[in-house]
Design a protein around this nucleic acid. Sequence first.
DNA 1: TACTTGACTGAGAGCAACTCTCAAGGGGTA
DNA 2: TACCCCTTGAGAGTTGCTCTCAGTCAAGTA
Lengths: 136, 136
Amino acid sequence: MYTIKEVAKLMDVSEHTLRFWAKSGLFPNIKRNENNIRQFSEHDLGWVKIVKCLRSVGTDNKSIKRYVDLCLIGDSTIPERYGIIKATRIKALQQMEELKKQLELLDYKENYYEELIKNNEIDKYNPVNDLQTNAV
Amino acid sequence: MYTIKEVAKLMDVSEHTLRFWAKSGLFPNIKRNENNIRQFSEHDLGWVKIVKCLRSVGTDNKSIKRYVDLCLIGDSTIPERYGIIKATRIKALQQMEELKKQLELLDYKENYYEELIKNNEIDKYNPVNDLQTNAV
DNA sequence: TACTTGACTGAGAGCAACTCTCAAGGGGTA
DNA sequence: TACCCCTTGAGAGTTGCTCTCAGTCAAGTA
């Protein structure tokens, strides 16, 4: 059993966010002890993990709640749940592609600035030094 | 020269968002025609591209504005700009790793549901069919 | 025993970054 | 002239946190 603080640390999600997710119904029935303190079980960590996963791919909380509710209903919802996961995976793959593209741009910029700095070092000994490199 | 609508289509960013970014000072001096309509140049598209890139990696608008302002100041800010790009690139690489991890989970779930569905198909001809697969 | 400290609670204010609606003001065509 | 489509800025609304705060409780300390 874990307190909310421990879960926050373990899963790298803030306590605030965990409470917010809990209040939004994204974790079903987290147990409380006699002092009303949440007690996350190993099984609950699984919920945190999947919620975090879906969020990180940009799924909104309402859709995550839908998925969670489907899980609670039982077998009859397996096809819909399968569809959600499949669609989410495709979304994640697309994000991967997008990220790769943006990384290329960042690589290019980084090299560009490196060249600029290298040349500026040389230019310190060069009387002609009025270049304005305010390109992006 | 492009209208905001054309830029929105070209860069896959909504007109609303472009106006919001423009108002936030994320594009320096977009020209207007005599009717006060924004006219994006090829050069302006470069700004849209880098802003989109920085946003997609989670840089907040304030920091993007800082970067844009540095670009406008000129050569003296090259080291700081270089630092920003380098840090952003590292952040992007970390996101890539995180995304890979989440993709593994999604792969696992997808296979899990596929197995479940396959077995359910078989179970249609099986009198013992009361399994409750409400696992996540 | 009284006090302090630290963790947890829910309610609710605040915030970033959109997202959407709307009224107003062109320009072009029939 | 009427109609249509586009653009504009202002501003309301939304999502998903993020933070503050007052209150509760248990354990440790003087």
